[in-house]
Amino acid sequence: MAHSGINLIFEGQNLPRLLGGLWITIRVALIAIIAGGVLGIFLGVLRTFKNRFLRFILRLYLEFFRIVPTVVLLFLFYYILPKSMNLNLPAAEVATLVFTLWMAAEASDIVRGALISVPQHQVDSGLAIGLNRSQLYYYVLIPQSLKLMLPAMMNLISRIIKTTSLLLLISVLDVINVGQQIIEANQKQYPQGAFWVYGVIFVLYFLICYPFSLLAKKLQKD
């Protein structure tokens, strides 16, 4: 290649712009992971309660978010919130909301699974020394289940980050959207721009997600 297309990345403001787009992507993921994680732990605890009705509702919530593809979820919220509820949010906030609810749904299942696999004698011992329900969760169940849920949580986090690539579809100015702008603006000078820009974004996503996948593997082994 005589004039390699990789120069396109380093020309002018292109690299800072790409990284700026990446920051928007990461911000959506970060808020969703934190807020959704907290909500997910809360819902997961609720799902271990005996109340049938509550468990049914939460199960329905989980299954809905599992069955409907994320692309479709994004569009559902993006189109229906303003139309039916008169709630006009910027696209990035709609996306944050969707990812938070999705994270909460998936996390609640992980938390529930971890809570019910804490050995029964731990619960019995806790009750025997006179802990009440909330003390039992706070001092016994949640600390012990944390270790069990961490590998699955790491995988979920990396899934959330990967899925933020869909932000482009509801026209959030994320890293891929910025990439497209750069490619289109330089079409004449760099006909192979797409190869390099998408290649760089590919690598960027890999660099962000790989540590989580390594961590998940390591946690699984311990």
Binding site: F195, W196, F206
Partner: peptide, 23 residues
């Protein structure tokens, strides 16, 4: 396996569909 698991399908598709014609 690491490369494919740690990148989103959307960017894989973009790379195959828009990027590869460049080469």
């Amino acid at each position: 396996i690491e490369l494919s698991r740690n990148t989103p399908l959307l960017i894989q598709l973009f790379f195959i569909y828009y990027g590869l014609p460049g080469i």
